[in-house]
């Protein structure tokens, strides 16, 4: 199967400080790749580098098209939706406006309407709160909104940055259930950054473990999960 996303020798730097030192990352079409590692390993930076939100180097391609030299908003328009850490919802706008913004790059009005209904089917809690300001939602609801907004793009690839962060266990289970459904039913590929390695490895078919900006290990999710040494050293459970 061809990869939907492929990065080779990916590097990234904040000012003079280099954070990624040449990573190779693949996401199969319709697959889920988990990005694991300790705090500060550079996981979030990988997602930012793919979306051109930091100064980056190396080569990356999406569905065979090079992402090099493209601006964030153009990469998004190719069908890559990024759910950033801290969720990035527009707190002062309503839930409905957030969803409308998710579909900003699309021109097909009728389909957007249908998607809006479909996404609200995934997250009935949001449907009840469509006119509410996003800032007044609970943490779990805001995470749902962030994912829902990303889905409104009708993406081919979803980049998720710690979707479980700061949420109650029940809400986490909820969200991961929905992610699995989206992946299975809609064929949306995912690259997911998670602290909670167990959860991520359950969802993923492939996993990468990074350590201070370098690849420590990568392989099928099951292999990574069963590797004692990796588990103890990097995943701490």
């Amino acid at each position: 199967m061809a990869p939907i996303l492929e990065a080779r020798g990916l590097t990234a730097a904040y000012g003079p400080i280099q954070v990624l030192h040449g990573l190779d990352i693949r996401v199969e079409d319709g697959g889920v790749t988990a990005l694991l590692g300790a705090n500060g390993a550079g996981k979030t930076t990988v997602l930012r580098a793919l979306c051109a939100m930091v100064r980056r180097g190396g080569a990356a391609s999406f569905r065979g098209r090079s992402l090099n030299g493209q601006a964030t908003e153009d990469i998004v328009r190719l069908g890559i939706a990024h759910v950033p850490d801290g969720r990035g919802t527009f707190a002062a706008l309503t839930v409905n406006e957030n969803l409308r913004l998710g579909a900003y790059a699309r021109r097909d009005r009728a389909a957007v309407k249908a998607d809006s209904a479909r996404v609200c089917g995934y997250f009935p809690r949001l449907a009840e709160r469509r006119q509410q300001q996003a800032g007044t939602l609970s943490g779990g609801e805001q995470q749902m909104l962030a994912i829902a907004r990303a889905l409104m793009l009708r993406p081919k690839l979803l980049l998720l940055d710690e979707p479980s962060f700061g949420l109650a266990p029940l809400a986490v289970a909820d969200i991961f259930g929905i992610l699995r459904k989206i992946n299975r039913d809609d064929g949306v590929s995912m690259l997911i950054v998670e602290q909670n390695a167990n959860l991520a490895l359950d969802l993923a078919d492939h996993a990468c473990v990074i350590e201070t900006g370098r690849m420590a290990m990568s392989g099928p999710a099951a292999v990574v999960r069963d590797n004692e040494a990796v588990r103890r050293a990097y995943l701490s459970y």
Binding site: T72, V76, G88, A105
Partner: peptide, 8 residues
């Protein structure tokens, strides 16, 4: 930042 992420 979030605006760029929805393609604005």
């Amino acid at each position: 930042t979030s605006s760029r992420l929805v393609g604005i």
